[in-house]
Simulated assay, not measured.
Amino acid sequence: MSVTQHKKEAPENVNCKVISVSDTRSKETDKSGRFIINLLKESFHTIKDYQIVPDDYEVILDAVKAGALDKKIDVILINGGTGIAKRDVTIEVVQDLVEKQITGFGEIFRMLSYLEDIGSAAILSRAAAGVYLDTAVFSMPGSRGAVKLAMEKLIIPEICHVVREVHLHRKENK
């Protein structure tokens, strides 16, 4: 079956959880989280949950697990905590949880970052995606530019297609 046919069979909208990882942001100052939410809503997707969590492995882990266990949530979008400093652990959480990696997300994100935005600094950019408990999980850096790039160029164009593929042989016990 062609990609075009897959996209025709995909849902028109999906239910999302947005997680911003930050030790300093609040809902009032979380520009990247709000940007993600606004883009999702503009694309007719539903926000089922939104939270800001500190850059702490266990707290991020619990937030992602809660989203994946919620039958109403199809996609978890995480921003922040992706740097290379010792405290940045979002990618480690995602890598430890996902059952299937979507490696192309990080690869293409870095390529686009290199070409369109930050040049060789793209080697420091960590982004990851995968599937956990029949839920798509996307993790992107927390800067507004990185979120804009990931959302507009990769996630929004493919989010429904990804959910279609994840749900194709969905486990009934979610």
Rank of each mutant, 00 (worst) to 15 (best):
V53Y: 11
A150W: 07
L149W: 03
E42M: 12
N79V: 01
Y50L: 09
Q5H: 08
P157W: 12
A122I: 03
F44R: 07
A128M: 12
K41G: 03
I37E: 15
A150V: 05
E107S: 13
T29I: 10
K86T: 15
H169G: 02
G106S: 11
I36R: 00
Y50R: 06
D30C: 09
K27H: 12
V137A: 07
K65G: 03
T82I: 00
A10I: 00
T24K: 14
S120N: 01
Y57V: 07
L77K: 02
Q95I: 10
I36N: 02
K100Q: 14
V166D: 07
V147W: 10
V14M: 07
G83S: 12
I37N: 07
I19W: 11
A10G: 05
L149Y: 05
Q101N: 08
L61A: 06
E9I: 00
S26K: 12
E42P: 02
S22D: 01
H45F: 09
I47E: 10
D49Y: 11
L112Y: 15
V137K: 06
V131F: 00
N38S: 14
G80L: 03
E165R: 08
Q95Y: 08
R34W: 12
K48D: 13
S43P: 02
G81L: 03
K27T: 15
T24C: 08
A122S: 15
Q95G: 07
D88W: 10
R164L: 01
A10T: 01
V59F: 09
S113R: 04
V166C: 05
D55V: 06
T103N: 07
T135Q: 06
V3K: 04
S125E: 00
E107W: 13
E165H: 10
K72N: 10
L133V: 04
G142P: 06
